[in-house]
Structures are given as C-alpha cells and as structure tokens.
Design a binder for these strands. Sequence first.
DNA 1: ACCCATACTTACATAAATGTTCGTTCCTTA
DNA 2: TAAGGAACGAACATTTATGTAAGTATGGGT
Lengths: 124, 124
Amino acid sequence: MGKIKTSSTNFENKSNLATGCPEAYAVNLIKGQWILSICYCLKNARLRFSEIRNQIPNITERMLTLQLKQMEENKLILKYVYAEVPLRVEYELSEIGKGLLPILERLGDWGQHHREYLEAEAFK
Amino acid sequence: MGKIKTSSTNFENKSNLATGCPEAYAVNLIKGQWILSICYCLKNARLRFSEIRNQIPNITERMLTLQLKQMEENKLILKYVYAEVPLRVEYELSEIGKGLLPILERLGDWGQHHREYLEAEAFK
DNA sequence: ACCCATACTTACATAAATGTTCGTTCCTTA
DNA sequence: TAAGGAACGAACATTTATGTAAGTATGGGT
C-alpha cells in the first residue's frame, strides 16, 4: 500500500467522510481485499502467520503482512510474538474485532440474497 | 474508474473472493467512496441528481455519475428519467437497497464505538 | 561452514479508484 | 442570437491498492 499522500484531495475527502460518517469509517476498516478472509480464519482460532497464509490460497506474504499490520493498528487483532527459533507469531481477534462478526454475518446474508436476486434477474 | 482488466491477478482474486465469500461480495458493493453518502441521502427521499450533489459537499459530478451508475447496475437504486426541459432524473433506493439500511446502521454503531475506543486508547 | 524455516522487508511494477478540466445535448427564456 | 440549467461524457492526471520478485535476521541442526 505504501505511504498515502496527506495533501491530496482524495485523502481529504476520505478523512471528512470518516470523521462525519461512522458507516464510512467502519467500511474503511474492512474494505481491504483480504481482511474479511483473515477475520474468517481467526473467527474461532488463534493462528500463526503461516497458518493464515495456508488457509488463504492466493494471498502473497506481502499482502498478508500489510493487511495484518493494518488490522493490528486498527486494533481489530492482537499479535503475540514468541522469541523462539524459528520465530513464532500468533494472531487473534480482539474483543472489538469479535464485535464485528455478527454484523458481517448479516451483511453476508444480505449479499447472498442480493446475489441470488441478481442471478434471477439475469434470467428474465 | 474506467474499465477493469479482466486478465489481472487482482481481478481474479477479487472474483474468487466475491464468488466464495458473500461478506466480501457485499463489501464490494458498498466500498465506493461516496456510495454510503448517497445511500444516506436517499434514505427517506427520492432525489434528483443535482439535489444529491448539493447534499454531498465535496463530490464532483463525475464521481456522482460513476457511483450512481454502479449502484444502478447493482440494483441498489432505481433511476427515473423524465423527458422534460431541463432534463429531470430522479433516484431512489430499491427494495434490496433499503434492506441494506439496518445493517449499515449496526455497522455505524460499531464504527462509532470503535472510534471512541481508539481515542480512549490514545490517551493512555 | 552451511542449510533450514519463519516472518517478515524492500524495491519495483501494475491495476484500480479518484480527481480535474472541458465539452455536449436538450429545449427554454431573455 | 445568445445565454443558461440539468445531467451527463471524454480525455487526461494523480493517488491508492495490489502484485512480483528478491532479500534479510534469527538461531538451531547437520
């Protein structure tokens, strides 16, 4: 993702929306391409970096690193580092991260319903 | 937004996630920068293009056009065109679009809570 | 001395989303 | 004849997100 440019119009718009609208603020926390997959993996388990990677087929190590870092900064997950060899790092959902799960479930139900609706429309 | 490149890895990943995971599918429908603002405007009203534009301070006509088009393609909104002069076009939330509102409300509550939590953390 | 695995990091390249500017079409009114 | 508002569209530039390939640090095992 790289650094963002705090002088751009785009950045300013994003900030304004995130400040004024909690829905937009929330969506910004979860719209990363792999974040929901990671949430799903960590739903009922505390996992290591490599375990997450193996459960998400097409993710690269770079993207996994970036998304985990972002989630940690946003306090959606907790990170545990064990000074062993080889290094062991584990991740789990935070309390506030877990609070997202039931909402995501409803959003998923809506998405499922929406998809079926669109497919039915396509037939007509 | 322009055309997307259906041969890219990025596109393929997005497709796979949207196919397999209804949560990711749903987030894709609402992650556009201005889509939630538009939903908010149309929550209780059927509005013209220019009315929406005036209610969302920093949006450009181009972005409003693009996001409305995307929402219409995804059947989140309905578009009514009246052959008058000057031209009149109105938009309103579809049934399935309205179904999103209560979920967004819960997401907004969570976002609000999350934001306050982060701010409290920053004090410590 | 060398290799191994883990969990990254860095540099670079591409794709996608958003922003800026200008133009267009319709008909009406001045 | 000119001007004007509504709702866009096109060309181009910038910013952000994602992908690819390679390298690093660690310390133990062989």
